[in-house]
Amino acid sequence: MTRSERYTCAITRDRDGRITAVEVAVDDLDGGHRVVRLEGERATHVAAFLQEVLRSAGLRGRQWTSPKPFALSPTLGAHAELLLRTVKPLRRIDRIVGVAEGVAGMSREEASYWHAQTRRRHGLKALRVLLDGGYRR
């Protein structure tokens, strides 16, 4: 049996069913725990791209709409975590959407590569520059 990181995803909605927060939690191989959470507008703008990533991996709609956290495979979890981590510090909506679209459009192999690279210094910045040209319009 091989060990791998464990990923869970949770979608928080308001009473009207609108997404208010998206969260990916990871239990890594070293026993550490990390959480990436987007709230408010960022969560709203990233939700469609996250759903695209999850749907392409065969995740059913019931899991997406459930208020309970659901488990993700290591590859899918890494892709979802990469998506949230990449857009988290961004403020401008056009950059959030552009970067999220780029990450969502990545293949599983490309997302796994960039997930590993973002653990290195300036990895996230390099990915953002690649996806949106690094412009500060």
Rank of each mutant, 00 (worst) to 15 (best):
Y7T: 11
Y7I: 05
T8H: 09
C9T: 14
R13P: 10
D14Y: 01
R15Y: 07
D16K: 12
G17F: 13
A21Y: 03
E23P: 02
V24C: 13
V24N: 04
A25C: 10
V26W: 11
D28I: 02
G31N: 10
G31F: 14
G32S: 15
H33W: 13
V35H: 04
V36D: 09
E39R: 00
E41R: 15
A43C: 07
A47E: 04
A48F: 02
F49T: 12
Q51P: 05
R55F: 08
G58F: 11
R60K: 14
T65L: 14
T65W: 13
S66G: 11
K68Y: 05
P69V: 07
L76H: 10
G77H: 10
A78W: 09
A78G: 12
L82M: 01
L82A: 03
L82H: 00
L84A: 03
L84V: 14
L84R: 03
T86F: 00
V87T: 14
V87G: 10
P89F: 07
I93N: 14
R95C: 02
G98S: 08
G98M: 05
G98V: 02
V99D: 03
E101A: 06
G105R: 04
M106G: 06
S107H: 02
R108K: 05
E110A: 15
A111I: 12
A111M: 07
W114D: 09
H115E: 05
R119Q: 02
R121G: 09
R121W: 12
A126R: 10
L127N: 02
R128W: 07
V129H: 04
L130K: 03
L131A: 07
L131P: 00
D132P: 02
D132L: 03
Y135G: 00
R136N: 01
